[in-house]
């Protein structure tokens, strides 16, 4: 997937960091793919934790692509570009934990059964080595 951050639809397509076991990746997908109530409908099996982690790989974006693209906007004064292209979603399939910092819809209230959803900043949940936006910092991350 080719990533272009400048003037991206940051409120229609969300950047998410997802992890399961020792595997993790970034993906970019329409908002509805992060509504946990719907995850079952994309799967043939009832194993959400394994199945949806694999399903999201179709939206996978390479870390280096994100890093290189972010460096092209890091001098911008456009908050939509700078902050809109920071991950808004964090999904831990082992802990059944879903975090959202999306301002437009309450995705954290629509998690899959047995999951915990939370509205919180995402940046600190992601390991430093995967923070593609470094060295940019903001109180909103």
């Amino acid at each position: 997937m080719v990533v272009r951050f400048k003037d991206r639809n940051v409120t229609g397509e969300l950047i998410a960091f997802v992890k399961k076991g020792i595997s993790s990746f970034y993906c970019i997908a329409d908002v509805e793919y992060f509504i946990g109530e719907y995850w079952n409908s994309y799967l043939k099996s009832t194993n959400i934790e394994g199945g949806y982690f694999e399903f999201l790989k179709r939206f996978k974006v390479d870390y280096y692509s994100l890093h290189d693209e972010y460096q092209t906007i890091i001098g911008s004064s456009d908050d939509f570009d700078l902050l809109g292209n920071i991950p808004k979603i964090y999904i831990d399939f082992d802990r059944k934990y879903f975090a959202s910092y999306f301002q437009e819809q309450e995705l954290e209230l629509r998690v899959a059964e047995g999951w915990k959803g939370e509205y919180t900043k995402i940046g600190n949940l992601i390991p430093n080595e995967f923070k593609y936006w470094n060295p940019y910092t903001s109180e909103w991350i």
């Binding site: 003037d7 639809n9 940051v10 409120t11 939509f80 819809q105």
Partner: peptide, 9 residues
């Protein structure tokens, strides 16, 4: 309209 290309809720 600060960002006419983004989704508007």
């Amino acid at each position: 309209f600060n960002k006419p290309n983004v989704s508007l809720n």
